[in-house]
């Protein structure tokens, strides 16, 4: 299958036709509109190598995320960055290309923190291997991590090695009624203490905190933090998959990334705050510029995550020297500008 993918890329390069790389098509809503012939990767599936004692799994990118997670769960392990799937069809390739992480991210790391190696097909149709299956590897530039969040604009990712982690023995969720400003303050105070926190979310005037670890470790932390212990594993799954009521509206949904302790921003709209304050979701009809200006002033950036104008600047604009660098990097990997043109930025 990898050979066929390479051939398809070589053909596209010869024809000068753009390709849209597609796994499960579960994140088609994300990023800018793009055009081109569909290059389906979902047939390129299966676990290549998995040794639980190495904490490493190598998997073809067409593999369904749910299938990979099931294989890991059988060994008591997990993708610790809890990637949102947004549908059963979601593939591993989409997880890497979108670079989206779930509730555990601020406490454990993002997709990019768990990528150890990748194989990619570049715009010349060459199948290349970077990084590896070991925890530490500084041979050559870190091309594997560069693929994370690049939305397929630099190459077709065909195989990825992830570091995996044991599933915690115990999880507990605490809930407490707090206004947003105090909730953000509290989340940051806790993060500066050695507590086994694995998720935080403030929505509808309530702060949810998840603790994960050993029986005794979690029990001790529950005692220290107080609040109501709720049996609510489903809450974190709904948050991760954006199935909470907050996410169902038709208003454009913004993802706002700011330094975690930034107080609530005075931008009109409805807010849901997670990641200890570092990731905030905003439902707002306000103009793109108005939102971005205020977010940037707080030291952050804003992505038009769902809805709105998908042909405009969906991702926060880059300063000119960085945009130029992005264009040169694109050119270094994909000189014919074949892959997902414009999905990330115009001209990239």
């Amino acid at each position: 299958m990898a050979v066929e993918l390479c051939e398809a890329v070589v053909q596209a390069a010869a024809d000068g036709t753009a390709v849209q790389i597609q796994g499960g098509n579960s994140k088609a809503f994300y990023g800018r509109e793009t055009a081109g012939r569909v290059l389906a990767v979902s047939g390129h599936s299966g676990v290549v190598d998995y040794e639980p004692s190495e904490l490493v799994v190598t998997v073809r990118t067409g593999t369904a995320v749910s299938a990979l997670e099931a294989a890991l769960a059988r060994e008591g392990q997990m993708l610790a960055f809890e990637p949102p799937r947004f549908g059963d069809a979601a593939t591993v390739g989409g997880v890497v290309a979108s670079g989206l992480s779930g509730p555990r991210r601020p406490y454990c790391g993002a997709v990019r923190d768990f990528v150890l190696g990748a194989r990619i097909i570049n715009g010349r149709g060459e199948h290349l291997r970077f990084g590896g299956q070991v925890m530490k590897n500084v041979a050559g530039y870190d091309v594997s991590r560069l693929m994370v969040g690049a939305l397929g604009t630099l190459g077709v990712i065909t195989e990825v090695s992830f570091k995996v982690l044991p599933v915690p023995v115990r999880d507990a969720t605490l809930r407490m009624a707090l206004p947003a400003d105090l909730a953000i303050q509290r989340m940051n105070e806790w993060a500066a203490r050695p507590l086994p926190i694995s998720g935080t979310c403030h929505t509808n005037g309530e702060l949810y905190v998840r603790l994960s670890g050993s029986e005794s470790g979690v029990a001790a932390a529950v005692n220290r933090l107080g609040g109501d212990a709720v049996d609510d594993a489903a809450f974190w799954e709904s948050l991760r998959e954006q199935r909470l009521d907050f996410f169902t509206a038709q208003t454009p949904l913004w993802r706002v990334s700011v330094p975690p302790a930034v107080p609530p921003l005075a931008i009109e709209g409805e807010w849901l705050t997670e990641w200890g304050g570092a990731q905030r979701w905003l439902k707002s009809p306000l103009a793109v510029e108005t939102i971005r200006e205020q977010v940037a002033a707080a030291g952050g950036h804003a992505i038009l995550f769902r809805g709105g104008d998908r042909s405009g600047p969906v991702f926060h604009p880059l300063p000119q020297p960085l945009l130029a660098l992005h264009q040169r990097l694109k050119n270094a990997f994909d000189p014919g500008r074949l892959f997902n043109p414009g999905r990330l930025y115009e001209g990239v």
């Binding site: 500084v138 870190d142 969040g149 990334s257 570092a278 952050g300 950036h301 992505i303 930025y345």
Partner: peptide
């Protein structure tokens, strides 16, 4: 960035090492 992530390619990872 001062936030947990920044827009565009992961140049931070690329610079590291």
């Amino acid at each position: 960035a001062d936030s947990l992530d920044s827009p565009g390619y992961d140049l931070l990872a690329l610079m590291t090492g």
